[in-house]
Design a protein around this nucleic acid. Structure first.
Lengths: 141, 141
DNA sequence: CTAATTAAGGATATAAAGGTCCGAAAATCT
DNA sequence: AGATTTTCGGACCTTTATATCCTTAATTAG
């Protein structure tokens, strides 16, 4: 469904939300540790999230990452890493696929995609962080 | 969503259904042509569909491929090529993710996945071939 | 039987995703 | 200022997906 990089990105964002008490920053080691993602690869993903304005970073000692100070949806995270293909492209790979010129499964998948897009677009990071903080939702294993 | 190979496989199966008048066989060239997939790669996918019992093949002149003579769902095709990951694995990549030990988005995605699985599991190739035959659903471009 | 045709299957090439390494740049602390 | 810590960014390696090539096996027609 999502690329590995995108899976990591979502976990990173959720984790950073849970740590974000009093504007504290979390470092790379901390982050990759918390969601079980390889450190060097995690660094790349963090960079990309910063570039896309979803995270803010600060270098040097006491440096690290924090979530940008505004509501962020799951969709924004997914699009930042995987692009819009998951909510746009034809499931059979047709370049042109619309109700005017549909592929054989167009209608069926429009419904599924709308469902997916709806969830991604209305679920905010702040909505889901509490479960992790309370310890009954997990980011690892 | 699906791998390229799986996209091809779905188109192959649908196409073969539309050609399947009077038990006629379709050859590799014909098939790859009809859905715009590279010939040699299409051959590999056809082999895999035969191995999985979704197609039957026949060699030699007048040889080719035909859809196995029983109702086949989209899910069977997807699973034959991509495995069950799309309907089984955690979207955040957790090895263990269940209602007993859920990831932060478990509930939201259970609903989406059930929707997807439902469509794949109840849509038969015969249900969708008519649109292609009538010429108002397309497999190419 | 021979030639022609078609799928099967192994080997190999190419592209993309996933992942690592290391030096440079920025910030902090002493 | 100098040493240290941490992110940035480029180069590189590994694995998987995508795609091609070519030989072999089966089948049919002449």
């Amino acid at each position: 469904m999502f690329s590995k990089a995108c899976e990591y990105a979502l976990k990173i964002m959720i984790y950073l939300c849970t740590v974000q008490e009093e504007g504290k920053l979390a470092g790379l080691k901390d982050i990759s540790n918390a969601n079980g993602s390889p450190e060097a690869y995690t660094a790349k993903i963090l960079q990309q999230l910063v570039k896309n304005g979803l995270l803010q970073s600060h270098r040097g000692p006491t440096g690290g990452f924090k979530v940008s100070d505004r509501p962020i949806t799951l969709l924004e995270v997914v699009v930042a890493i995987d692009g819009e293909s998951i909510v746009k492209d034809c499931v059979l790979g047709l370049r042109e696929c619309s109700s005017a010129r549909p592929c054989p499964v167009h209608d069926k998948f429009v419904a599924i995609r709308d469902h997916l897009k709806g969830v991604l677009n209305t679920t905010y990071l702040t909505d889901i962080k509490s479960g992790v903080i309370e310890g009954n939702r997990f980011l690892k294993l």
